[in-house]
């Protein structure tokens, strides 16, 4: 088995474009799902009575249905319903955000609920109002406690961008498929793709770990 790396070096721009799209998609859907997840979590905690079961249905549905199915449905079926045509990247962004926001909402909720009730009692004893307690005492601790889970979600986000290849988004996976098909050197191309993903993901998980270890005591009451 001879390993001919020239296919990689000859087409590095093509592959680099894919890396750029992966990072852009991961960053955009990551940020959007953090925001949407926050709104959903708030709706569950403080919204009207009908909001809670609606949110639970949404979250559990996203836990039940594969990302592939969500992306494929968003790209192929949604345009039929709405009459709009959608770029693959946009469809992937919408699908990934909808899927990830459900998990983000759960992380927010679990984080807030994990702060000791004694902290709230101590704050009440000082005479603080409920909003002050949430803003100054509970949320800061909750955010620290959520960090490992969000780190994990970031890792999942990056990995899930690869599924967008199925709806022709030109990220790493898709670019690799195209190149592998044209060059008839799938092993080199896919091995390179594995290396790239590993080099992106490994520092992310390690980095989140490191950061958490330094700030963990700020969340431990």
């Amino acid at each position: 088995m001879n390993f001919d790396l020239s296919v990689i070096t000859d087409h590095w721009r093509f592959l680099a474009y894919g890396i750029g799209v992966t990072i852009a998609l991961a960053a955009a859907s990551g940020a959007a799902s953090l925001a949407l997840g926050f709104v959903v979590a708030l709706a569950r905690l403080f919204g009207p009575r009908w909001a809670k079961p609606a949110v639970v249905l949404y979250i559990d549905s996203m836990r039940a249905v594969p990302v592939l199915v969500v992306l494929v449905w968003t790209f192929f079926a949604l345009p039929i319903l709405t009459g709009l045509t959608m770029l693959p990247f946009v469809a992937a962004l919408i699908g990934l955000t909808a899927h990830l926001a459900a998990y983000a909402a759960e992380i927010y909720r679990a984080g807030v609920e994990s702060v000791r009730p004694g902290q709230t009692r101590a704050s009440l004893a000082l005479g603080m109002s409920r909003t002050q307690i949430l803003r100054r005492i509970v949320m800061p601790q909750a955010l620290v406690r959520m960090l490992p889970a969000f780190g994990s979600l970031l890792s999942v986000t990056i990995k899930d961008t690869a599924i967008a290849s199925v709806i022709a988004v030109p990220e790493i996976m898709r670019q690799s498929e195209t190149l592998a098909g044209q060059s008839f050197q799938p092993i080199e191309v896919y091995s390179f793709a594995m290396l790239v993903y590993f080099l992106i993901l490994f520092p992310v998980t390690r980095g989140v770990d490191r950061i958490y270890r330094r700030v963990a005591h700020l969340g431990r009451s």
Binding site: R116, G118, Q119, A125, I137, Q141, L218, G219, R220
Partner: peptide, 9 residues
């Protein structure tokens, strides 16, 4: 409080 409940952050 018995458990102090200092604000850790």
């Amino acid at each position: 409080f018995q458990s102090f409940e200092l604000f850790p952050h």
